[in-house]
Design a protein around this nucleic acid. Structure first.
Lengths: 238, 238
DNA sequence: GTCTATATATGGATAGAC
DNA sequence: GTCTATCCATATATAGAC
């Protein structure tokens, strides 16, 4: 019983666990402690899971980074796996809606450019979120496989339909929409997931905003030139 | 310091460790046992490190998969880290020379298409090698950072020079050569590293040769259309 | 609701028999 | 050169005092 806590309630939604209602955390504004502690743990966990992976991360390490005693962590999140799930849920929520810009009525060049910019923005602002997800997928998606096979698949199918419409309208070159989405994901997330390598090659101690601007410009040009029906060349335009 | 064994000696080069020379492993053809055992351990390790990461992998698990007792593993590779280094060295060797097709005199469209095909081939044939490397980078490259900062950086600088020449010759659009290389890496390695996600979205139980052929076709078209100076449109050609 | 102290498990590494 | 038995460190999780 009271041992089962929902991973989702930590994902910034307001869903309080029953236990929260016990003492001093209602109308008058209490429950701050729980909320702020959970948030600190989630942030710490995002960093540590990104740096060390699931197995490499230790609850002691996460707690230390959050500046809370280890037992406290286990009070808020019963197991390491539960905390990990909560972190993953955050990442998915972060990315989920960015593909929504793909609608048949929009200009593909605009929608695609915006999507690239948005994903790169997350790679810059939340590299650890991206890394945790990458690590999860890399190792066979033991936690999020069902999500990939249901929700993500549908979502991509859906947006693939939009891309097909763009192609039919003569706005894009003929291409496989699903592979196209893979390519968008790959090039944008690369700057978070392979950050160390990017830094090494560019000779940077840290990636600057400028570097990300360069990346955005290069990616956008490459993708748009590569995928859009070239306006100057004499393609059929309805 | 005698504790440090060179990672490279295990990487299929003939460099035998001193200990190898003790009993029955020279001219007359012995040392088979060692060679075959090391090979089996390396293959098992590649799989297990790919599936679980460095911390998640256990020497017991690797030994079990290689069908050798755990102590045997520690006989051939003193520590888990040493075995891991050997696996990494294999991957690097695998990829190292593929960029060599980039030479100023070659046609960029050919060289680039070949490079994409080669990297995709490795993603198909040795996905675990790619995953081990991705995992290493993801977690800050604790083992290969020096390699990235010296060898890899120089190599990319070198090939960036070639791309610049191609641009100057009017064969490619103006773009940042280093980011261009990142994009090649990202889209090709994606099919190994994010394989589970690709499978989920495509609804495959396994990726087929056909899937890789589709990926190759889509990537090649996108990149070539995106990066090459378009012959039909009226760009300046020296 | 917080934290110290600890039970229990697991894994890396090695000693020492064969 | 091989492998069983074991040492020791570390990690998850919880009991129980505050």
């Amino acid at each position: 019983m009271a041992r089962q806590r929902d991973a989702k309630n930590t994902a910034s939604s307001g869903g309080k666990s029953p236990r929260t209602l016990t003492r001093k955390n209602n109308a008058n504004g209490r429950g701050h402690i729980r909320e702020s502690n959970e948030l600190r743990l989630l942030q710490a966990a995002e960093t540590v899971f990104a740096e060390r992976g699931f197995s490499g991360a230790t609850t002691a390490g996460i707690a230390a980074r959050a500046k809370l005693p280890k037992a406290n962590l286990h009070y808020y999140f019963r197991t390491k796996a539960e905390l990990y799930r909560a972190v993953l849920a955050n990442v998915l929520e972060l990315w989920l809606d960015e593909l929504d810009r793909f609608t048949p009525d929009r200009d593909p060049s605009e929608a695609i450019a915006e999507y690239i910019a948005a994903k790169l923005k997350w790679s810059r602002l939340r590299p650890n979120a991206s890394k945790v997800f990458a690590n999860e997928i890399l190792h066979g998606a033991p936690f999020v496989k069902p999500y990939l096979e249901r929700d993500l698949r549908r979502r991509v199918e859906d947006k693939a339909g939009v891309v097909r419409e763009w192609i039919d309208q003569g706005k894009m070159r003929p291409l496989d929409p699903r592979h196209f989405v893979f390519q968008l994901w790959a090039v944008t997330q690369h700057y978070a997931d392979f950050e160390v390598q990017v830094r090494a090659v560019l000779g940077r101690r840290r990636l600057t905003e400028r570097d990300f601007a360069d990346a955005a410009a290069n990616i956008t040009r490459l993708i748009l030139q590569g995928a859009l029906a070239s306006p100057p060349s004499g393609r059929i335009r309805k």
